[in-house]
Design a protein around this nucleic acid. Structure first.
Length: 690
DNA sequence: GCAGGTTCACCGGC
DNA sequence: CGCCGGTGAACCTG
């Protein structure tokens, strides 16, 4: 999945392909060679080579002066004209808006990420941040006192000093974005766990979001038109706040994000992004266009009556979309899809850049005026929602999947068929092996120690101090109510046969087999790989590493046997960072040894195995392994269960870090394996693995 | 289905 | 002008 070169998707696609159409009317990301200033004398100064431009007034120019590109003055930038000094390649090179905040950030999170910190005013008049989230005012003492509104005695987000340990700064925007999301979700999962016990008010997403914002743990602050560095088309989100903290779509509720800037005496406004979430009467037929309904008129969620109570007005987001239409500027589109696995039933998918092609008003169902905007997707972008439409179809009708070699490689052994496809070459399938959904112990596990069982009736519940399984897991159940792993641990103890609880108990996530539509597919250069038709949420159980449990590694030098051998001797950095975040709540930080202990277990999947034997290595993986016990108590021979590190869109290859024998990282044993050249093409690739 | 809760833009005061 | 505080709108989530 992360086997993408630096700034891959945008960069590669936009650079190489004739993607002129993607050159934005507003030069690339807003802020490109444009300095916003908060000093009132000259609200907007264009520092392009051409020099400052003044407002033309009157009709809307294709390039409003405040969005002017370097070549805008000399020759009016036409649609498709690449920006002069470096083209529009998806890598943001905006000028830096020097703010006090900027200085403040510089030694904390995104340290040299000035490029990605374009702090712009959305009003043009004022540039400020809400006091309660301003680092300048967020001394503990001060925040405690006056400003923080307290209609409810809500806990104020805890601001900590050293953020580097939690979310290390990175020059790679993708890494920054992923780090922010990973921290957010770790925080959110932990808050869910805490809330369940105290029965406190819910909305862990908002709590986690508030803490992230209070600590400036976010990427791409400031609004920009066009692509967002580090956020790739096709990325998925489970909460609106997630899109907020990575700078994709700022409003926590509103569907239209826009910015207003002041040019001379006039306010100019432009839409930035829209979320098509189904609250209004939108048509979502074709994947290439979208009819979006304007906001206002009381037609949306707020009031329970779904009926409008008033005409929509040409203001705010509606006005912004209208202006974007007139200028032909690009608008990011986030579409939503149903997901039954998710409690909210909804996932947000970033579908890339669109342009408004029509706008009109019509009478809504309640007889009031509504604004309608028809947006078309820009050509040549990576696939977004298209992938979903395809996989949805496959799930309904598996025979519609083309290039299938085998409809079910597990021959009915898995809960859901695993199809085998090759869209790359003529290879007819992997070499022979026996499919097995469980590990085979060549020597019987000596279960001398009897399994402990809890006495919970029906299901184990959080906060039940009498649950021995919860105690064994350190006091709380390891999974959230939606079944997500809360944090990585040295060992997870699931409920077992001796427990009184039923199979519906949440502490039995991994023992019931896979719940995901997998496919084994032919990669271009790394043999077979594994991916999913379903979206996979961070913390979800994916599958077990099955095979034959051996005593020692034995393989011929010439054989490829070792590529099917799993050893629990290495854990990658990302795995260790996975738990980071709860420190922001004041939780003690977890030491590496608490998360990871090397284990003697060796699993050989050469002759016997399941889908996980097809999972390739990556130095930037999206999956990690976690030891779990559920049917015996041999701590040194646990089940090896895979979980998602982050949200994984459908059809993204699943990879984990095989480890390395170069002595770096967390390699606890010297291995005899021959290192192999790594082809993961991650920016952090170590070059070899195994 | 309702309601508690959030952010941000906007506006007015100093 | 810039800072501060209040207010209201908004395709949220449980």
């Amino acid at each position: 999945m992360d086997a993408r070169p630096f700034s891959s998707k945008e960069g590669v696609v936009l650079d190489v392909k004739p993607l002129r159409s993607l050159a934005p009317m507003f030069p690339a990301p807003l802020g490109f060679n444009t300095t916003f200033t908060s000093s009132g004398a000259t609200p907007f100064v264009c520092v392009s080579p051409i020099g400052a431009l003044s407002s033309t007034g009157g009709e809307l120019p294709p390039f409003p002066p405040y969005f002017a590109s370097p070549n805008a003055g000399a020759q009016p930038a036409k649609y498709g004209t690449p920006a002069a000094n470096g083209s529009y390649d998806g890598v943001v090179r905006p000028s830096v808006f020097q703010t006090p905040e900027r200085a403040e950030f510089s030694d904390t999170y995104l340290d040299d990420d000035s490029e990605f910190y374009v702090h712009t005013s959305t009003s043009g008049r004022k540039i400020r941040r809400p006091k309660r989230f301003s680092g300048n005012h967020m001394d503990d003492s001060e925040a405690e006192g006056s400003d923080w509104k307290k209609p409810k005695q809500r806990k104020k987000p805890h601001k900590i000093k050293d953020l580097s340990s939690i979310c290390p700064s990175s020059l790679d925007p993708r890494e920054s974005v992923e780090g922010v999301l990973m921290t957010f979700d770790a925080l959110r999962r932990r808050l869910v766990q805490l809330d369940e016990v105290t029965d406190a008010s819910k909305r862990a997403d908002l709590k986690a979001g508030a803490i992230m914002l209070a600590n400036d743990l976010r990427a791409n602050m400031g609004k920009r038109i066009g692509l967002v560095p580090g956020v790739e088309i096709g990325d998925i989100f489970y909460f609106r706040i997630e899109m907020c903290v990575v700078g994709l779509h700022a409003p926590s509720m509103a569907g239209i994000d826009y910015m207003t800037t002041r040019v001379g005496d006039v306010d100019e406004t432009a839409a930035i992004s829209i979320v098509s979430a189904g609250g209004y009467e939108n048509e979502e037929g074709d994947v290439n266009f979208l009819v979006y309904t304007g906001q206002g008129g009381g037609g949306a969620s707020k009031h329970s009556e779904k009926k409008q109570v008033d005409d929509q007005k040409l203001e705010r987001g509606n006005l912004a979309l209208e202006k974007s239409f007139q200028r032909g500027s690009l608008v990011r589109v986030i579409r939503s899809a149903k997901d039954s696995n998710c409690i909210t039933g909804k996932i947000y998918i970033y579908d890339g850049l669109y342009k408004v092609q029509e706008s009109w008003t019509e009478k809504g169902k309640a007889g009031f005026n509504v604004f309608k905007y028809k947006l078309f997707r820009e050509l040549g972008q990576p696939e977004g929602i298209t992938v979903w439409k395809r996989t949805e179809e496959w799930k309904l009708n598996p025979s519609s999947r083309g290039r299938v070699i085998l409809p079910d490689i597990s021959s009915g052994m898995e809960n859901i068929p695993v199809c085998l496809v090759n869209e790359v070459d003529d290879v007819k399938g992997p070499s022979h092996f026996t499919y097995a959904t469980r590990v085979k112990y060549l020597k019987p596990i000596s279960s001398l120690r009897p399994l402990q069982g809890c006495r919970c009736l029906s299901v184990c519940l959080p906060g039940d101090t009498s649950c021995s399984c919860a105690r064994q897991n350190g006091g709380s159940l390891p999974y959230s109510s939606s079944g997500l792993l809360v944090s990585r641990k040295a060992m997870i103890y699931e409920c077992n046969n001796s427990c009184a609880c039923t199979a519906n108990c949440r502490n039995r996530q991994t023992q019931k087999g896979v719940k995901i539509h997998f496919e084994v597919f032919r990669t271009k250069d790394r043999g077979w790989g594994l991916r999913s038709w379903d979206p996979i949420r961070a913390g979800s159980f994916i599958c077990e590493y099955t095979g034959e449990v051996e005593d020692k590694v034995e393989f011929d030098e010439d054989s490829d046997e070792d590529q099917y051998i799993f050893q629990a001797i290495y854990v990658d950095e990302k795995t260790l960072n996975w738990n980071h975040g709860p420190e922001l709540l004041g939780d003690p930080s977890i030491s590496q040894s608490e998360i990871f202990k090397p284990l003697p277990i060796i699993i050989n999947a050469k002759n016997v195995g399941n889908i996980s034997r097809f999972m390739n290595h990556s130095c930037s993986p999206n999956v990690f392994w976690q030891p779990v016990l559920h049917d015996h108590s041999e701590e040194e021979y646990p089940h090896i269960m895979f979980f998602a590190i982050k949200h994984i869109p459908p059809m993204t290859e699943l990879t984990f870090d095989y480890g390395s024998s170069d002595g770096n990282g967390m390699d606890f044993f010297a291995t005899t394996r021959e290192p192999k050249r790594c082809l993961c093409s991650s920016p952090k690739c170590r070059g070899v693995f195994g």
